[in-house]
């Protein structure tokens, strides 16, 4: 069981059986994610990121190839609930994943479904809310919270299930910069303090930089699968896919293009500042 999630020749299509050529949304994907790893998935709209994510907790089953979660084939119906339980999911729109009208009751939803005894649910809920720093607001109505707070409630809801891995599908897409920071800091905390496996689908390159590994997808295929520095330093390649690189990487890339002697694999503002100071 060295992999948390592993896909082998994974293929998937939403419409199968039409006379015409099947359009694979996922086409021959080989990917493995180790326990405790933080993997960011990047790609253009409609390239199949969400579809891939839904294979990780058996919401979708492969049309071809195999997906292993915790070493078990997701096609194995006997372990159905284990896949769901082991891989939590957080989606883009916080309003559409909150089921209850009180924060703590929402966080309790998953353990309630799993039939966990009441006092154990209470413990899990309190702990999950403390982890995402929402314990003080546990009795509040979710619809009165800010976007970032709602999304942290959704994260607590996933944590309360006690999964080994959480998949985030563009969790910050609908948030303002402040909410985005709250959510990303929470995600990083889960990885670093709780040693959870994290898969983060995002359109924000500044978030992907914090991952251990970046997977770049296009048209249902994985094109790059490497540490962020190697992926982002290839600015030309990213641009060719219509993707961005972090602003500071772009800045250094352009400076280098104009003949200035600067490293082009800069990823963070701090690094960029260092490089620029060296030039002065």
């Amino acid at each position: 069981m060295s992999n948390m999630i592993k896909t082998e020749h994974l293929r998937y299509a939403y419409q199968i059986g039409t006379q015409e050529k099947v359009k694979f949304v996922l086409d021959d994907i080989d990917l493995s994610i180790s326990p405790g790893e933080f993997v960011a998935v990047l790609g253009h709209n409609g390239c199949g990121k969400s579809t891939l994510a839904k294979h990780f907790n058996a919401l979708l089953l492969p049309a071809g190839g195999t997906v292993y979660v915790g070493g078990m084939d997701t096609k194995d119906e006997a372990h159905y609930w284990e896949f769901r339980k082991n891989v939590g999911m957080v989606f883009q729109n916080p309003d559409n994943q909150i089921v209850a009208t009180v924060v703590e009751e929402d966080v309790a939803f998953a353990p309630e479904n799993l039939g966990v005894p009441s006092d154990e649910i209470r413990k899990r809920v309190d702990e999950a809310l403390k982890t995402v720093d929402m314990y003080e607001l546990r009795r509040h109505a979710p619809h009165l919270l800010s976007g970032g707070q709602k999304q942290r409630v959704a994260i607590a809801g996933a944590i309360a299930m006690e999964p080994k891995c959480i998949v985030f599908d563009e969790p910050t897409a609908m948030l303002d910069p402040k909410g985005r920071k709250e959510v990303i800091d929470t995600i990083v905390k889960l990885k670093e303090e709780k040693h959870m496996t994290v898969v983060l689908i995002t359109h924000y390159m500044e978030e992907a930089v914090r991952a251990d590994r970046v997977v770049v997808m296009d048209k249902g295929k994985v094109l790059r699968n490497d540490v962020p520095r190697n992926v982002f330093s290839d600015v030309k390649f990213m641009k060719s896919l219509g993707l961005d690189v972090p602003q500071v990487t772009e800045l250094c890339y352009r400076l280098a293009k104009d003949g200035i002697n600067i490293r082009s694999d800069v990823m963070t503002v701090a690094e960029c500042v260092d490089e620029l100071i060296k030039l002065l």
Partner: peptide, 11 residues
């Protein structure tokens, strides 16, 4: 979306 989210939480 709610249905998918609920299923993901073992409903």
């Amino acid at each position: 979306e709610l249905a998918v989210a609920m299923e993901s939480r073992c409903y």
